[in-house]
Design a protein around this nucleic acid. Structure first.
Lengths: 221, 221
DNA sequence: TGAATTTCTTGACGGCCGTCAAGTTCTGAT
DNA sequence: ATCAGAACTTGACGGCCGTCAAGAAATTCA
Protein backbone atom coordinates (compact mmCIF):
# COMPACT_ATOMS: atom_id res chain seq x y z
CA UNK A 1 0.00 0.00 0.00
CA UNK A 2 2.30 2.73 1.19
CA UNK A 3 5.03 3.44 -1.32
CA UNK A 4 8.60 2.84 -0.16
CA UNK A 5 7.92 2.66 3.54
CA UNK A 6 10.88 1.01 5.09
CA UNK A 7 13.22 1.35 2.16
CA UNK A 8 13.41 5.09 2.47
CA UNK A 9 14.27 4.80 6.13
CA UNK A 10 17.52 3.09 5.35
CA UNK A 11 20.65 5.19 5.10
CA UNK A 12 22.33 2.78 2.72
CA UNK A 13 19.79 3.71 0.06
CA UNK A 14 20.03 7.42 0.73
CA UNK A 15 21.73 8.32 -2.54
CA UNK A 16 19.03 6.75 -4.68
CA UNK A 17 16.21 8.49 -6.49
CA UNK A 18 12.51 7.88 -6.08
CA UNK A 19 12.09 5.51 -9.02
CA UNK A 20 15.01 3.43 -7.84
CA UNK A 21 13.49 3.20 -4.40
CA UNK A 22 10.34 1.89 -6.03
CA UNK A 23 12.32 -0.82 -7.74
CA UNK A 24 13.85 -1.87 -4.48
CA UNK A 25 10.54 -1.76 -2.70
CA UNK A 26 9.17 -4.27 -5.17
CA UNK A 27 11.93 -6.67 -4.23
CA UNK A 28 11.59 -6.32 -0.51
CA UNK A 29 9.55 -8.75 1.54
CA UNK A 30 7.77 -7.51 4.64
CA UNK A 31 7.32 -9.36 7.88
CA UNK A 32 5.65 -8.59 11.12
CA UNK A 33 6.55 -10.23 14.37
CA UNK A 34 4.72 -9.60 17.63
CA UNK A 35 6.88 -7.82 20.17
CA UNK A 36 9.00 -10.27 22.06
CA UNK A 37 8.97 -12.99 19.47
CA UNK A 38 12.22 -14.56 18.47
CA UNK A 39 13.20 -15.65 15.02
CA UNK A 40 15.90 -18.17 15.18
CA UNK A 41 17.52 -18.67 11.88
CA UNK A 42 14.00 -19.18 10.59
CA UNK A 43 13.03 -19.44 6.91
CA UNK A 44 14.99 -16.80 5.03
CA UNK A 45 16.75 -14.47 7.45
CA UNK A 46 20.06 -16.28 7.24
CA UNK A 47 20.62 -15.69 3.58
CA UNK A 48 18.95 -12.34 3.32
CA UNK A 49 19.68 -8.81 4.29
CA UNK A 50 17.41 -7.72 7.12
CA UNK A 51 16.11 -4.19 7.51
CA UNK A 52 14.60 -3.05 10.77
CA UNK A 53 11.41 -1.28 9.77
CA UNK A 54 10.07 -0.55 13.18
CA UNK A 55 11.04 -1.10 16.76
CA UNK A 56 14.17 -2.48 18.25
CA UNK A 57 16.00 -5.66 17.36
CA UNK A 58 18.36 -7.54 19.60
CA UNK A 59 20.85 -9.73 17.81
CA UNK A 60 22.08 -12.63 19.89
CA UNK A 61 24.55 -15.35 19.21
CA UNK A 62 24.50 -18.73 20.86
CA UNK A 63 27.72 -20.13 22.28
CA UNK A 64 28.52 -23.82 22.30
CA UNK A 65 27.68 -24.07 25.99
CA UNK A 66 24.21 -22.67 25.43
CA UNK A 67 24.79 -19.18 26.75
CA UNK A 68 23.77 -16.33 24.58
CA UNK A 69 25.69 -13.20 23.76
CA UNK A 70 24.00 -9.94 22.85
CA UNK A 71 25.96 -8.60 19.90
CA UNK A 72 23.98 -5.69 18.53
CA UNK A 73 21.06 -3.53 19.45
CA UNK A 74 19.54 -2.36 16.19
CA UNK A 75 17.18 0.55 15.70
CA UNK A 76 14.81 1.50 12.92
CA UNK A 77 16.67 1.72 9.63
CA UNK A 78 19.56 -0.44 10.75
CA UNK A 79 20.51 -3.48 8.73
CA UNK A 80 21.81 -6.89 9.60
CA UNK A 81 22.84 -10.06 7.91
CA UNK A 82 26.41 -9.93 6.77
CA UNK A 83 26.00 -13.61 5.95
CA UNK A 84 23.72 -12.43 3.18
CA UNK A 85 26.48 -10.70 1.35
CA UNK A 86 28.94 -13.24 0.24
CA UNK A 87 28.68 -16.45 -1.60
CA UNK A 88 30.72 -19.26 -0.16
CA UNK A 89 30.08 -18.55 3.47
CA UNK A 90 29.81 -21.68 5.50
CA UNK A 91 26.74 -20.95 7.54
CA UNK A 92 27.55 -19.78 11.00
CA UNK A 93 24.62 -22.11 11.55
CA UNK A 94 23.91 -22.11 15.27
CA UNK A 95 23.30 -18.69 16.59
CA UNK A 96 21.91 -15.37 15.56
CA UNK A 97 18.43 -15.16 16.89
CA UNK A 98 16.53 -11.92 17.02
CA UNK A 99 13.63 -10.38 18.84
CA UNK A 100 11.65 -7.69 17.12
CA UNK A 101 8.51 -6.16 15.71
CA UNK A 102 8.66 -5.18 12.03
CA UNK A 103 11.32 -6.32 9.64
CA UNK A 104 11.93 -6.31 5.91
CA UNK A 105 14.25 -8.60 4.07
CA UNK A 106 15.94 -8.74 0.70
CA UNK A 107 17.17 -11.99 -0.74
CA UNK A 108 20.87 -12.36 -1.15
CA UNK A 109 20.87 -12.65 -4.91
CA UNK A 110 18.52 -9.68 -5.30
CA UNK A 111 20.72 -7.57 -3.10
CA UNK A 112 23.81 -8.53 -5.00
CA UNK A 113 22.13 -7.40 -8.20
CA UNK A 114 21.28 -4.12 -6.53
CA UNK A 115 24.87 -3.55 -5.51
CA UNK A 116 26.03 -4.20 -9.05
CA UNK A 117 23.52 -1.72 -10.40
CA UNK A 118 24.00 1.01 -7.80
CA UNK A 119 27.58 1.13 -6.52
CA UNK A 120 26.71 3.73 -3.92
CA UNK A 121 24.88 1.01 -2.02
CA UNK A 122 27.91 -1.14 -1.52
CA UNK A 123 29.98 1.83 -0.43
CA UNK A 124 27.34 2.67 2.14
CA UNK A 125 27.24 -0.88 3.36
CA UNK A 126 30.99 -0.77 3.65
CA UNK A 127 30.70 2.19 5.94
CA UNK A 128 28.22 0.38 8.13
CA UNK A 129 30.38 -2.72 8.27
CA UNK A 130 33.51 -0.76 8.96
CA UNK A 131 31.93 0.87 11.94
CA UNK A 132 30.52 -2.39 13.20
CA UNK A 133 33.88 -4.02 12.74
CA UNK A 134 35.74 -1.50 14.83
CA UNK A 135 33.01 -1.63 17.46
CA UNK A 136 33.42 -5.40 17.65
CA UNK A 137 37.18 -5.10 17.78
CA UNK A 138 36.91 -2.88 20.80
CA UNK A 139 34.36 -5.16 22.39
CA UNK A 140 36.52 -8.23 21.88
CA UNK A 141 39.54 -6.50 23.33
CA UNK A 142 37.49 -5.22 26.20
CA UNK A 143 35.93 -8.51 27.25
CA UNK A 144 39.21 -10.32 26.77
CA UNK A 145 41.42 -8.02 28.77
CA UNK A 146 39.44 -5.82 31.13
CA UNK A 147 37.57 -6.52 34.34
CA UNK A 148 33.81 -6.52 34.58
CA UNK A 149 34.11 -3.34 36.61
CA UNK A 150 36.03 -1.54 33.89
CA UNK A 151 33.73 -2.76 31.14
CA UNK A 152 30.67 -1.56 32.97
CA UNK A 153 32.24 1.80 33.76
CA UNK A 154 33.10 2.17 30.09
CA UNK A 155 29.63 1.26 28.99
CA UNK A 156 28.09 3.85 31.30
CA UNK A 157 30.34 6.68 30.25
CA UNK A 158 30.04 5.82 26.57
CA UNK A 159 26.28 5.64 26.71
CA UNK A 160 26.15 8.95 28.53
CA UNK A 161 28.48 10.50 25.99
CA UNK A 162 26.38 9.21 23.12
CA UNK A 163 23.24 10.68 24.66
CA UNK A 164 25.04 13.87 25.67
CA UNK A 165 23.64 13.82 29.15
CA UNK A 166 24.77 12.81 32.61
CA UNK A 167 21.44 11.33 33.58
CA UNK A 168 19.93 8.58 31.49
CA UNK A 169 17.88 5.42 31.60
CA UNK A 170 19.61 2.14 30.90
CA UNK A 171 18.18 0.96 27.58
CA UNK A 172 18.42 -2.69 28.53
CA UNK A 173 17.38 -5.01 31.28
CA UNK A 174 20.18 -6.17 33.52
CA UNK A 175 20.08 -9.61 32.01
CA UNK A 176 20.60 -8.27 28.48
CA UNK A 177 23.19 -5.82 29.62
CA UNK A 178 24.93 -8.72 31.29
CA UNK A 179 25.06 -10.85 28.18
CA UNK A 180 26.22 -7.83 26.23
CA UNK A 181 29.09 -7.14 28.60
CA UNK A 182 29.93 -10.79 29.09
CA UNK A 183 28.94 -11.04 32.73
CA UNK A 184 25.90 -11.75 34.92
CA UNK A 185 23.01 -9.62 36.21
CA UNK A 186 24.23 -10.15 39.76
CA UNK A 187 27.65 -8.75 39.01
CA UNK A 188 26.13 -5.70 37.38
CA UNK A 189 23.99 -5.02 40.40
CA UNK A 190 27.00 -5.32 42.65
CA UNK A 191 29.23 -3.10 40.57
CA UNK A 192 26.60 -0.41 40.23
CA UNK A 193 26.13 -0.50 44.00
CA UNK A 194 29.89 -0.19 44.35
CA UNK A 195 30.05 2.81 42.02
CA UNK A 196 27.30 4.44 44.05
CA UNK A 197 29.12 3.79 47.33
CA UNK A 198 32.18 5.40 45.78
CA UNK A 199 30.13 8.44 44.87
CA UNK A 200 30.75 7.99 41.15
CA UNK A 201 27.09 7.56 40.20
CA UNK A 202 23.62 7.86 41.70
CA UNK A 203 20.97 5.25 40.99
CA UNK A 204 17.38 6.41 40.70
CA UNK A 205 14.17 4.41 40.29
CA UNK A 206 13.44 3.06 36.82
CA UNK A 207 16.95 2.04 35.78
CA UNK A 208 17.97 5.70 35.71
CA UNK A 209 21.58 6.51 36.39
CA UNK A 210 23.20 9.85 37.09
CA UNK A 211 26.92 10.20 36.61
CA UNK A 212 28.67 12.24 39.24
CA UNK A 213 32.31 11.76 38.33
CA UNK A 214 32.87 10.62 34.75
CA UNK A 215 36.63 11.13 34.94
CA UNK A 216 37.06 8.87 37.93
CA UNK A 217 34.72 6.34 36.37
CA UNK A 218 37.02 6.03 33.37
CA UNK A 219 39.97 5.32 35.63
CA UNK A 220 38.28 2.20 36.93
CA UNK A 221 40.41 -0.86 36.37
CA UNK B 1 60.77 -1.68 -11.21
CA UNK B 2 58.66 -4.81 -11.14
CA UNK B 3 55.22 -4.18 -12.58
CA UNK B 4 52.26 -4.72 -10.30
CA UNK B 5 54.02 -6.73 -7.66
CA UNK B 6 51.83 -6.67 -4.60
CA UNK B 7 48.71 -5.40 -6.29
CA UNK B 8 48.21 -8.57 -8.25
CA UNK B 9 48.51 -10.63 -5.11
CA UNK B 10 45.39 -9.12 -3.67
CA UNK B 11 42.11 -10.96 -4.18
CA UNK B 12 40.07 -7.77 -3.98
CA UNK B 13 41.60 -6.66 -7.28
CA UNK B 14 41.16 -10.01 -8.95
CA UNK B 15 38.47 -8.92 -11.40
CA UNK B 16 40.56 -6.13 -12.84
CA UNK B 17 42.50 -6.11 -16.09
CA UNK B 18 46.18 -5.51 -16.51
CA UNK B 19 45.98 -1.81 -17.39
CA UNK B 20 43.79 -1.18 -14.39
CA UNK B 21 46.28 -2.91 -12.15
CA UNK B 22 48.92 -0.58 -13.55
CA UNK B 23 46.82 2.39 -12.56
CA UNK B 24 46.47 1.09 -9.07
CA UNK B 25 50.13 0.25 -8.83
CA UNK B 26 50.95 3.87 -9.55
CA UNK B 27 48.87 4.93 -6.58
CA UNK B 28 50.27 2.43 -4.15
CA UNK B 29 53.06 3.31 -1.76
CA UNK B 30 55.55 0.67 -0.76
CA UNK B 31 57.15 0.22 2.61
CA UNK B 32 59.61 -2.16 4.04
CA UNK B 33 59.90 -2.93 7.70
CA UNK B 34 62.52 -5.21 9.17
CA UNK B 35 61.04 -8.37 10.65
CA UNK B 36 59.86 -7.76 14.15
CA UNK B 37 59.41 -4.04 13.85
CA UNK B 38 56.20 -2.51 15.03
CA UNK B 39 54.37 0.34 13.40
CA UNK B 40 52.15 2.00 15.85
CA UNK B 41 49.65 4.19 14.15
CA UNK B 42 52.69 5.74 12.47
CA UNK B 43 52.52 8.23 9.59
CA UNK B 44 49.79 7.04 7.25
CA UNK B 45 48.60 3.58 8.22
CA UNK B 46 45.62 4.85 10.15
CA UNK B 47 43.91 6.50 7.23
CA UNK B 48 45.07 4.17 4.54
CA UNK B 49 44.31 0.71 3.34
CA UNK B 50 47.17 -1.63 4.10
CA UNK B 51 48.14 -4.53 1.87
CA UNK B 52 50.42 -7.25 3.15
CA UNK B 53 52.95 -7.73 0.37
CA UNK B 54 55.17 -10.24 2.07
CA UNK B 55 55.38 -12.04 5.36
CA UNK B 56 53.00 -12.17 8.22
CA UNK B 57 51.33 -9.29 10.01
CA UNK B 58 49.96 -9.37 13.50
CA UNK B 59 47.29 -6.82 14.24
CA UNK B 60 47.05 -5.87 17.88
CA UNK B 61 44.79 -3.56 19.74
CA UNK B 62 45.67 -1.85 22.97
CA UNK B 63 43.20 -1.91 25.82
CA UNK B 64 42.82 0.94 28.28
CA UNK B 65 44.77 -0.97 30.91
CA UNK B 66 47.74 -1.39 28.61
CA UNK B 67 47.22 -5.04 27.69
CA UNK B 68 47.23 -5.90 24.08
CA UNK B 69 44.86 -8.10 22.19
CA UNK B 70 45.83 -9.98 19.05
CA UNK B 71 42.95 -9.49 16.64
CA UNK B 72 44.12 -10.78 13.30
CA UNK B 73 46.94 -12.74 11.81
CA UNK B 74 47.28 -11.56 8.23
CA UNK B 75 49.07 -13.34 5.40
CA UNK B 76 50.39 -12.17 2.07
CA UNK B 77 47.61 -10.56 0.05
CA UNK B 78 45.43 -9.79 3.05
CA UNK B 79 44.26 -6.28 3.67
CA UNK B 80 43.64 -4.22 6.75
CA UNK B 81 42.48 -0.81 7.73
CA UNK B 82 38.74 -0.59 7.90
CA UNK B 83 39.27 2.87 9.37
CA UNK B 84 40.48 3.83 5.92
CA UNK B 85 37.15 3.32 4.36
CA UNK B 86 34.75 5.77 5.82
CA UNK B 87 34.82 9.44 6.31
CA UNK B 88 33.54 10.62 9.65
CA UNK B 89 35.14 7.93 11.72
CA UNK B 90 36.35 9.21 15.04
CA UNK B 91 39.76 7.72 15.16
CA UNK B 92 39.90 4.63 17.26
CA UNK B 93 43.13 6.40 18.11
CA UNK B 94 44.94 4.28 20.66
CA UNK B 95 45.54 0.82 19.42
CA UNK B 96 46.17 -1.07 16.25
CA UNK B 97 49.86 -1.67 16.06
CA UNK B 98 51.34 -4.11 13.66
CA UNK B 99 54.48 -6.13 13.20
CA UNK B 100 55.60 -7.06 9.74
CA UNK B 101 57.99 -7.15 6.86
CA UNK B 102 56.67 -5.72 3.57
CA UNK B 103 53.56 -3.65 3.29
CA UNK B 104 51.88 -1.47 0.70
CA UNK B 105 49.37 1.22 1.42
CA UNK B 106 46.78 3.20 -0.48
CA UNK B 107 45.53 6.52 0.78
CA UNK B 108 41.93 6.68 1.83
CA UNK B 109 40.84 9.18 -0.79
CA UNK B 110 42.62 7.30 -3.56
CA UNK B 111 40.98 4.09 -2.54
CA UNK B 112 37.57 5.68 -2.45
CA UNK B 113 38.11 6.88 -6.00
CA UNK B 114 39.05 3.36 -7.00
CA UNK B 115 35.89 1.95 -5.51
CA UNK B 116 33.81 4.48 -7.38
CA UNK B 117 35.51 3.58 -10.64
CA UNK B 118 35.54 -0.19 -10.19
CA UNK B 119 32.53 -1.40 -8.25
CA UNK B 120 33.84 -4.96 -8.15
CA UNK B 121 36.43 -3.77 -5.66
CA UNK B 122 33.93 -2.69 -3.07
CA UNK B 123 32.00 -5.90 -3.42
CA UNK B 124 35.17 -7.86 -2.86
CA UNK B 125 36.01 -5.77 0.16
CA UNK B 126 32.52 -6.43 1.45
CA UNK B 127 33.17 -10.13 1.27
CA UNK B 128 36.37 -9.75 3.23
CA UNK B 129 34.68 -7.62 5.86
CA UNK B 130 31.71 -9.90 6.12
CA UNK B 131 33.94 -12.83 6.88
CA UNK B 132 35.99 -10.86 9.35
CA UNK B 133 32.84 -9.64 11.00
CA UNK B 134 31.44 -13.08 11.60
CA UNK B 135 34.83 -14.26 12.80
CA UNK B 136 34.89 -11.44 15.34
CA UNK B 137 31.34 -12.15 16.40
CA UNK B 138 32.27 -15.68 17.22
CA UNK B 139 35.40 -14.55 19.00
CA UNK B 140 33.52 -12.04 21.11
CA UNK B 141 30.91 -14.60 22.07
CA UNK B 142 33.58 -17.12 22.81
CA UNK B 143 35.72 -14.96 25.10
CA UNK B 144 32.66 -13.57 26.82
CA UNK B 145 30.92 -16.83 27.59
CA UNK B 146 33.30 -19.76 27.46
CA UNK B 147 36.09 -20.92 29.70
CA UNK B 148 39.74 -20.70 28.75
CA UNK B 149 39.75 -24.45 28.48
CA UNK B 150 36.90 -24.49 25.97
CA UNK B 151 38.38 -21.64 23.95
CA UNK B 152 41.71 -23.37 23.65
CA UNK B 153 40.08 -26.68 22.74
CA UNK B 154 38.13 -24.90 20.05
CA UNK B 155 41.18 -23.16 18.72
CA UNK B 156 43.05 -26.43 18.43
CA UNK B 157 40.30 -28.29 16.65
CA UNK B 158 39.57 -25.40 14.31
CA UNK B 159 43.20 -24.98 13.39
CA UNK B 160 43.53 -28.68 12.74
CA UNK B 161 40.38 -28.64 10.65
CA UNK B 162 41.65 -25.70 8.62
CA UNK B 163 44.94 -27.48 7.95
CA UNK B 164 43.18 -30.80 7.38
CA UNK B 165 45.56 -32.69 9.58
CA UNK B 166 45.64 -34.03 13.10
CA UNK B 167 49.24 -33.11 13.68
CA UNK B 168 50.35 -29.52 13.29
CA UNK B 169 52.66 -26.87 14.63
CA UNK B 170 51.16 -24.00 16.58
CA UNK B 171 51.63 -20.95 14.34
CA UNK B 172 52.07 -18.60 17.28
CA UNK B 173 54.14 -18.27 20.39
CA UNK B 174 52.29 -18.96 23.57
CA UNK B 175 52.28 -15.30 24.45
CA UNK B 176 50.58 -14.32 21.19
CA UNK B 177 48.21 -17.23 21.39
CA UNK B 178 47.39 -16.09 24.89
CA UNK B 179 46.51 -12.54 23.90
CA UNK B 180 44.54 -13.92 21.00
CA UNK B 181 42.45 -16.16 23.23
CA UNK B 182 42.18 -13.63 26.01
CA UNK B 183 44.26 -15.48 28.57
CA UNK B 184 47.89 -15.91 29.68
CA UNK B 185 50.80 -18.09 28.51
CA UNK B 186 50.77 -19.88 31.85
CA UNK B 187 47.15 -20.89 31.50
CA UNK B 188 47.77 -22.21 28.02
CA UNK B 189 50.65 -24.34 29.22
CA UNK B 190 48.51 -25.71 32.00
CA UNK B 191 45.54 -26.50 29.82
CA UNK B 192 47.64 -28.19 27.17
CA UNK B 193 49.22 -30.30 29.88
CA UNK B 194 45.74 -31.13 31.11
CA UNK B 195 44.58 -32.18 27.66
CA UNK B 196 47.61 -34.39 27.36
CA UNK B 197 46.96 -35.98 30.74
CA UNK B 198 43.42 -36.67 29.58
CA UNK B 199 44.77 -38.34 26.47
CA UNK B 200 43.10 -35.85 24.14
CA UNK B 201 46.31 -34.60 22.57
CA UNK B 202 50.01 -35.36 22.46
CA UNK B 203 52.60 -32.60 22.67
CA UNK B 204 55.78 -33.00 20.67
CA UNK B 205 58.91 -30.85 20.56
CA UNK B 206 58.69 -27.64 18.56
CA UNK B 207 55.16 -26.57 19.47
CA UNK B 208 53.78 -29.53 17.55
CA UNK B 209 50.47 -30.95 18.67
CA UNK B 210 48.80 -34.18 17.71
CA UNK B 211 45.10 -34.55 18.28
CA UNK B 212 44.02 -37.91 19.57
CA UNK B 213 40.37 -37.35 20.29
CA UNK B 214 38.85 -34.41 18.46
CA UNK B 215 35.31 -35.29 19.43
CA UNK B 216 36.04 -35.30 23.13
CA UNK B 217 38.05 -32.10 22.75
CA UNK B 218 35.01 -30.32 21.39
CA UNK B 219 32.97 -31.38 24.39
CA UNK B 220 35.32 -29.49 26.71
CA UNK B 221 33.43 -26.94 28.76
C1' DT C 1 -6.07 -1.23 41.82
C1' DG C 2 -4.28 -5.50 43.36
C1' DA C 3 -2.16 -9.80 42.55
C1' DA C 4 1.08 -12.58 39.89
C1' DT C 5 5.16 -12.79 37.53
C1' DT C 6 9.35 -11.06 36.32
C1' DT C 7 13.32 -8.50 37.52
C1' DC C 8 16.51 -6.96 40.77
C1' DT C 9 19.45 -7.01 44.98
C1' DT C 10 22.33 -8.88 48.52
C1' DG C 11 24.76 -12.57 50.90
C1' DA C 12 27.64 -16.74 51.13
C1' DC C 13 30.54 -19.80 48.91
C1' DG C 14 33.74 -21.84 45.74
C1' DG C 15 36.33 -22.43 41.56
C1' DC C 16 38.65 -20.63 37.71
C1' DC C 17 42.37 -18.35 36.36
C1' DG C 18 45.61 -14.43 36.67
C1' DT C 19 49.93 -13.18 39.13
C1' DC C 20 54.43 -13.85 40.94
C1' DA C 21 58.43 -16.59 41.17
C1' DA C 22 61.85 -20.03 40.15
C1' DG C 23 63.53 -23.54 37.47
C1' DT C 24 63.86 -25.70 32.71
C1' DT C 25 63.88 -25.97 27.86
C1' DC C 26 64.30 -23.93 23.51
C1' DT C 27 66.34 -20.83 20.08
C1' DG C 28 69.47 -18.17 17.64
C1' DA C 29 73.69 -15.76 17.21
C1' DT C 30 78.56 -15.74 17.52
C1' DA D 1 79.28 -26.07 19.67
C1' DT D 2 78.56 -22.80 23.13
C1' DC D 3 76.39 -19.40 25.40
C1' DA D 4 72.99 -15.71 26.31
C1' DG D 5 68.45 -14.53 26.14
C1' DA D 6 63.90 -15.66 25.31
C1' DA D 7 60.18 -18.76 25.81
C1' DC D 8 58.08 -22.20 28.37
C1' DT D 9 56.56 -25.02 32.46
C1' DT D 10 55.11 -25.82 37.06
C1' DG D 11 53.87 -24.58 41.75
C1' DA D 12 51.69 -21.64 45.27
C1' DC D 13 48.61 -18.17 46.28
C1' DG D 14 44.82 -15.01 46.10
C1' DG D 15 41.15 -12.32 44.12
C1' DC D 16 37.60 -11.74 40.91
C1' DC D 17 33.43 -13.18 39.67
C1' DG D 18 30.04 -16.82 38.58
C1' DT D 19 26.59 -19.72 41.00
C1' DC D 20 22.94 -20.74 44.10
C1' DA D 21 19.46 -19.04 47.04
C1' DA D 22 16.18 -16.06 49.25
C1' DG D 23 14.04 -11.88 49.90
C1' DA D 24 12.77 -7.07 47.92
C1' DA D 25 11.30 -4.25 44.28
C1' DA D 26 9.17 -3.39 40.10
C1' DT D 27 6.41 -4.37 36.17
C1' DT D 28 2.44 -6.48 33.92
C1' DC D 29 -2.04 -7.80 33.36
C1' DA D 30 -6.61 -8.65 34.55
Amino acid sequence: MAEHECVQLVPIFSELGSEQLDTIESIVRHHHYPAGSTLFGADDPLDSLMIVANGQVKVYQLAANGREQLLYLLQTGDIDGEAALFKNQRRTSFGEALVTTDVCSIRRSDFQDLMQKYPSISINVLNVFGKRLSQLERQTTSTATESVEARLANYITETAAALKTDTFKLPLKKKDLATFLGTTPESISRKLALFERQGLITQKPGKVIEINDADQLLLTE
